[in-house]
Design a protein around this nucleic acid. Structure first.
Lengths: 183, 183
DNA sequence: CGATCGGTTGATATGAATCAACGTGCGTGG
DNA sequence: CCACGCACGTTGATTCATATCAACCGATCG
């Protein structure tokens, strides 16, 4: 079992024609996949988006810890549930939301996720994903991602430059993201 | 925590404008959601597709059983992992596969799932979902689902009548489903 | 027997994909 | 140190899969 200490990774599934679907983005502090807690092999592949550091933990050792310590079991359960809820949200995005809403929601999702672990100043943070990666996560083509990001940039809602992303008008971004919010 | 004894249910998330995204279909023998093992509330709603029977189990009781019995923990872990893998497959379908492929794969998925629990004779089984339900699961509109199903019917690949579905040409259906299979 | 619900079908609209060209920064080898 | 090549981003023109709108049908039920 692997814990990501530093950097960003994506877990993805590759299709026969070379296209990919990214299942989730992980940052420092996440597990590679909570599935690895219970079984050795993964149905998905891990892709490093940045340089990464990670540490390994043997499943048999982990199992002992979990069986002995109720709090660890609870914490692990929480991680699994959160992973499942993130997957559910991605399903809703892919099934029912427009490209613009998907992208707005993804940016906000990242903001929250990074904010939980790191200090994010002025809604500005490192953003190492390529547009191809965003497309593969959100079920779009890179050129469409480019156009939507371009639109957000032209509306002065976000700015991007050299691997950084800044949110200038958080309220506008939230308004877009909440179009058809689930109730 | 609930175990579905008989019938079909869907867990879904409702959007602000009334549309739905179904997250998964459950049949007799499934849990309503493995998330309920770890936490009391669900982010999704359960919809009964047929009449159902189910039984309830208190989480505190379950926890005792799990902590005492390693085999139960393993079985539970397996259910959670399978639930996660089904969600991953749905993400790939919604993100990267055409309507026809999604529908073909869904029919085959059901065939396998039902076959694990019940006797399915001649690739023919009860199919209580409305086209609206299929649309809400696969991220389509009901009229498009209708057209795709109509196409499969015209090609004599499947037949539908009064809540039953029969697969006439399994190999053709598999060929469609395996377009862009993941490698 | 009328109303409602699910399914079917046709015409049209549209969001996103595709195809194609070009720009730009960066790393590398000559 | 320069120039070439490559990876990534940008932009325009066009196409296509699926959505939308609308009408109708047949079965079931109260």
């Amino acid at each position: 079992m692997y814990i990501l200490c530093q950097g960003w990774v994506a877990s993805y599934i590759r299709l026969g024609d070379g296209r990919r679907q990214i299942l989730s983005i992980r940052i420092g502090g996440d597990l590679f996949s909570s599935k690895l807690v219970f079984q050795g092999k993964l149905d998905s592949t891990i892709l490093a988006i940045t340089n990464i550091r990670f540490s390994r933990l043997h499943r048999s050792d982990l199992k002992k810890i979990v069986m002995d310590n109720e709090k660890v079991l609870d914490a692990l359960a929480k991680v699994c549930v959160e992973e499942g809820m993130a997957a559910d949200q991605l399903i809703v995005d892919l099934g029912r939301r427009s490209a613009e809403v998907r992208i707005a929601r993804f940016i906000l999702f990242l903001t929250r996720k990074l904010g939980q672990r790191y200090v994010v100043r002025d809604h500005r943070y490192p953003f190492p994903m390529r547009q191809q990666d965003i497309a593969d996560l959100l079920g779009l083509t890179p050129v469409h991602v480019n156009r939507v990001l371009g639109g957000l940039r032209k509306a002065h809602i976000i700015e991007t430059s050299r691997g950084m992303l800044a949110i200038n008008r958080m309220s506008d971004l939230e308004r877009i993201a909440q179009t058809y919010e689930h109730v």
